[in-house]
Amino acid sequence: MKGKKKTIFLAIYFGLLFLPIYWMINMSLRTNADILGTLTLYPEDPTFRNYVKIFTDSSWYSGYINSIIYVTINTLISLTVALPAAYAFSRYQFVGDKQIFFWLLTNRMAPSAVFLIPFFQLYSTIGLMDTHIAVALAHCLFNVPLAVWILEGFMSGIPREIDETAFIDGYSLPRFFITIFIPLIRAGVGVTAFFCFMFSWVELLFARTLTVTNAKPISAVMTRTISATGLDWGLLATAGVLTIVPGALVIWFVRNHMAKGFALGRV
């Protein structure tokens, strides 16, 4: 392909990529009566009523707060337990290391639907149903392996001589790890946190099954609205637009490192 043709092709593709998202933004700026009345390519009479409604109605905005709470807990847990394990996998050879690594990976690939029934029973039994911590723990199933996998990739890129020098200088393993090693793989920790955040944020099945009212996430609020009678399209579109915002914000911060995460094939 020649240069000009390439640009045109890419422009068309990006246009098609934006179109569905644009359409949802368009819906979110109109009232339901307006949406059902006429089909217009842009909001002729833009209104922020839907946004105001979501930010003032607690059954809507508490969904966002619940999601953010369990996603944050999950990201913290995943990083804390994955950092030492990823170090072990990247630096040491021990009995069963490859087998455990593979077993962790299978959990990332497992169909979540398989774990639904036992999770429901398990969390009911230990009295964690409808709490943020239940969803956060359930998401560890795929996020901890993911975190170990990505972090191991970044850690293997750091030369081993750095560890050896530090140990000769009398650093203990924990002190070396916290004061020298983690700052070295800052970017990797950031990318990992980003992916944990994202995968916990986009997940629907566990979050919906393990919550009733107190910890109900925004995704569940949305799917329940769809089945309700008298569907308000404007409101639904607004809720959708607001779920994209966190992702879009975070992409911007990790854009230079993101390509590497994808390139390792570790997503």
Binding site: P20, I21, L236
Partner: peptide, 20 residues
């Protein structure tokens, strides 16, 4: 731009297309 669709919650993807 390419990464944007990858980071939209999966149920929102469904919603976007249901409307579209």
């Amino acid at each position: 731009t390419l990464a944007l669709p990858l980071l939209i919650p999966w149920n929102t993807i469904g919603t976007i297309w249901m409307i579209f």
